[in-house]
Design a protein around this nucleic acid. Structure first.
Ligand code: MN
Ligand code: MN
Length: 309
DNA sequence: GGTATCA
DNA sequence: TGATACCAACGCTCT
DNA sequence: AGAGCG
């Protein structure tokens, strides 16, 4: 941490990405302890083929950390005035009547432009711009509360996967990048968030009755301790989850990483999956989560089994 | 991070 | 030239 | 009611 060096960091570089000229600025600035903005940009450049399919067709909320993970940060929905004209936008009028011009990040130039703005984390909505009110993803957001651990979340996820399979549903899993897991169920975009949320709540309740360490809804702090919360509320319009392969603004630069179900049985630490080793991991294996974008499933049978008219 | 506004 | 302000939003919990 | 959190 050399403050004097930081304040005089004028390192700049012009690059061309798929025909777009981009000015990369303050490349030596430290965004994590020991990690520069140059490394952030390099990470997303190398991972672009893996992350872009998930970002494409979903309105972006920017998560900007110009002063690093310990500095002031802010979110942004409205595309800034200085957004290059070739960046695609999606105007959307929310219920309150406010029109927001969202950025669409579907190509490498936009991804690199955002990385240069110190956009560390890339979130995704659970629905696409073609039909924002009908999600194509259902998420079981598994949050362990101390002394429950990531390992406990893995155990819950494995039981959840069995439950989903009994309902005729395939599921996939990734680390959240922080302390828990996201179990994803891709669906045809024909259900409302109210329906998918209720589906997650009910299956969560069922799991809760099977496993004492599971909590299907928020409770006072004392009751949460040592349990894994299934946060069904994540399945709502406008809510987001960390995109697969996105970095998190946390120490060691962890990555939200797709896992094979067999890996959940091992002793894992989510911090094992970070900026420095994910490229190696996906090289060869490819994107094991990709089916999530290509497997629209129907929930009709599951609704029936769970008593949802 | 980039821009606007005010001293 | 430099200091300051802006940039989302919603339900939940805790006090 | 309001602050704090995710
Ligand atoms: Mn979570
Ligand atoms: Mn959560």
């Amino acid at each position: 941490g050399c403050t004097a060096k930081q304040s005089t960091d004028t390192s700049e570089r012009w690059v061309e990405v798929e025909g777009r000229r981009l000015k990369l600025t303050r490349l030596e600035k430290q965004l994590w302890p020991g990690i520069t903005k140059a490394e952030l940009i390099k990470y997303y450049a190398e991972m672009s083929d893996f992350i872009l399919p998930y970002l494409r067709s979903r309105p972006m909320t920017l998560h900007l950390y110009p002063d690093g993970i310990e500095g002031k940060h802010f979110f942004r929905k409205e595309a800034p005035e200085f957004t290059p004209d070739w960046v695609r936008r999606f105007p959307y009028r929310a219920e309150d009547g406010k029109l927001i011009n969202y950025i669409l990040c579907g190509d490498r130039p936009t991804l690199i432009w955002l990385a240069n703005l110190a956009n560390i984390e890339f979130p995704i909505t659970l629905s696409r711009i073609e039909d924002l009110e009908h999600p194509d993803l259902v998420v079981f957001d598994l949050d362990p509360f101390q002394p429950a651990t990531f390992r406990d979340a893995c155990m819950v996820a494995l039981v959840l996967r069995d439950g989903l399979r009994q309902l005729g549903l395939q599921s996939w899993v990734k680390t959240s990048g922080a302390t828990g897991l996201h179990v994803l169920v891709p669906v045809a975009p024909k259900y409302t968030f109210q329906q998918t949320r209720e589906f997650v709540r009910r299956l969560g309740k069922m799991l809760e009755s099977l496993m004492p360490e599971v909590l299907a809804e928020f409770r006072p702090v004392e009751e949460r301790k040592g349990r894994v919360l299934i946060d069904f509320g994540q399945n709502s319009l406008g809510k987001t989850i960390t995109a697969p392969y996105s970095l998190k603004p946390l120490p060691l630069a962890p990555v939200s990483t797709p896992l094979d179900w067999t890996e959940l049985e091992k002793e894992l630490d989510p911090r094992e999956f970070n900026m420095h080793n994910i490229l190696e991991r996906v090289k060869g294996g490819g994107d094991i989560l990709k089916p999530v974008l290509e497997t629209p499933q129907t929930l009709d049978r599951a609704f029936e089994a769970l008593g949802m008219g």
